Simulated assay, not measured.
Amino acid sequence: MKRLLRAAFSLNKYILYEKNKNYYIIFIYKAYFLPKYKNIETSIKKIFNYIKNNQF
């Protein structure tokens, strides 16, 4: 799970990139199964776009 999250994060971190702006994000995953990479990547993109659009 850690490897999948790290890969999805690395490939999509450009969504959050803004000069002079830092984000601290923690992901907590609680389930009994390992999801597919495509589902993780879709979720990461949704989270990043939500953060970017709502300016936390």
Rank of each mutant, 00 (worst) to 15 (best):
M1F: 09
K2L: 06
R3D: 10
L5C: 10
L5R: 05
L5S: 03
R6C: 05
A7G: 07
A8T: 07
A8E: 10
A8S: 14
N12E: 10
K13L: 01
K13C: 01
Y14L: 05
Y14H: 13
Y14M: 05
Y14S: 07
Y14Q: 09
I15A: 03
L16V: 11
Y17Q: 14
E18N: 15
E18G: 14
K19I: 07
K19D: 08
N20L: 01
N20C: 02
N20W: 06
N20R: 08
N20M: 01
K21C: 06
K21F: 02
K21V: 04
K21M: 08
K21I: 04
K21Y: 03
N22K: 01
N22H: 02
Y24T: 05
I25T: 01
I25G: 01
I25W: 00
I26R: 02
I26E: 09
F27C: 05
I28S: 10
I28P: 04
I28H: 05
Y29T: 01
K30R: 02
K30A: 00
A31P: 00
Y32H: 13
Y32F: 15
Y32P: 10
F33N: 07
F33K: 12
P35Q: 10
K36L: 09
K36R: 08
Y37Q: 13
Y37T: 04
Y37I: 06
K38D: 11
I40C: 07
I40A: 04
I40Y: 12
E41A: 06
T42L: 15
T42P: 15
T42E: 15
S43W: 03
S43K: 04
K45H: 02
K45T: 00
K46G: 08
I47N: 00
N49M: 14
N49R: 15
Y50C: 11
I51E: 00
K52E: 08
K52I: 10
K52W: 06
N53S: 10
Q55R: 13
